[in-house]
């Protein structure tokens, strides 16, 4: 039976990918950013922790999807996904391999469970998906895990509510538990934390709010479900809404969780970088 062994959240700031791809991780600006991933890199490498598959929740940033196609929740079921060309050529990272049997299983289970998924069989994946892989695994010749991509619309409003995302997480947990093969699965929620990439208010960072959010992933997760879009917008900037994707991860873990590791750093590009590792208590 497949088991959900841990949940990881991390920002997916494009600049992190740039620093890795261009060998700048030792520069002063980047050192503290990457220092916070060292614990996780070591932890995830250990055989008892390394997942076979990661269910990677991210958002597409106008790369695979454009104004002609806006799926609220999409699940990638293709065998593999190429890194997208976001305007400066594709990132020099390995192709992302799916566990397609498992992905189709998840897709089926979610639809039976009344989630109105869109199944995608051909797409490129942008920094939202590849940067977290780079942060956790560096620059391998091939990614050491299979990846099931779940893409969430957090660009065009209305985006799905935190509550709906939490419920999707719960349904993903049921789908994993229902998979007959022996598989070690992690779920990653990506994006956030506070940032605003537009307008005169750009550069907004709300450390207090972010830290409370990180605290409450263990201390009071139920509070997080009911945070409305307008609160993310006002308090954490127009792009802080990406944190609803962390709630899919947290909803999938269910019950009480233990915080194994936390990393928070300002700034990474325009963003308050957040990263946390959780496992069921």
């Amino acid at each position: 039976m497949a088991r959900l062994t841990a949940g990881i959240a991390t920002s997916h700031v494009p600049l992190i990918g740039v620093a890795i791809d261009q060998g700048k991780t030792e520069e002063d600006y980047f050192k503290p950013i990457f220092a916070g991933y060292e614990w996780t890199k070591e932890w995830i490498r250990k055989p008892e922790n390394k997942p076979d598959v990661v269910i990677l929740v991210y958002n597409d940033h106008a790369s695979a999807f454009d104004m002609n196609l806006i799926p609220t929740f999409a699940i990638g079921c293709a065998e593999e996904f190429e890194p997208a060309d976001e305007g400066w050529g594709p990132r020099p990272v390995p192709v992302v391999k799916n566990d397609a049997d498992f992905a189709w299983h998840i897709a089926q289970s979610l639809i039976i469970d009344e989630f109105d998924m869109t199944i995608i069989n051909k797409m490129d994946v942008d920094h939202g998906l590849t940067v977290p892989l780079s942060a956790m695994f560096g620059q391998p010749d091939a990614w050491p895990v299979k990846v099931v991509p779940i893409a969430v619309n957090v660009v065009t409003y209305p985006v799905p509510s935190g509550e709906r995302c939490w419920k999707l997480g719960e349904a993903i947990a049921r789908a994993v538990a229902d998979y007959p093969e022996d598989l070690k699965v992690q779920i990653w929620g990506t994006g956030g934390m506070s940032h605003q990439l537009q307008g005169p208010r750009a550069g907004l960072i709300n450390q207090e709010w972010d830290q409370k959010f990180l605290d409450d992933l263990t201390a009071d997760p139920q509070r997080l479900r009911s945070i409305e879009a307008i609160e993310y917008l006002r308090e954490t900037g127009s792009e802080g809404i990406e944190m609803v994707m962390w709630l899919i991860m947290r909803g999938a873990l269910q019950g009480d969780v233990r915080e194994l590791h936390r990393h928070y750093h300002v700034p990474a590009s325009n963003t308050a970088l957040g990263h946390i590792v959780l496992e069921n208590a």
């Binding site: 550069g203 960072i205 709300n206 006002r234 308090e235 954490t236 300002v266 700034p267 325009n270």
Partner: peptide
Amino acid sequence: YKAMMMAGGRSPDGVRS
């Protein structure tokens, strides 16, 4: 702008509403 970000970014105080 970079200096503001290095210093912790723009405070939300006064720009919430």
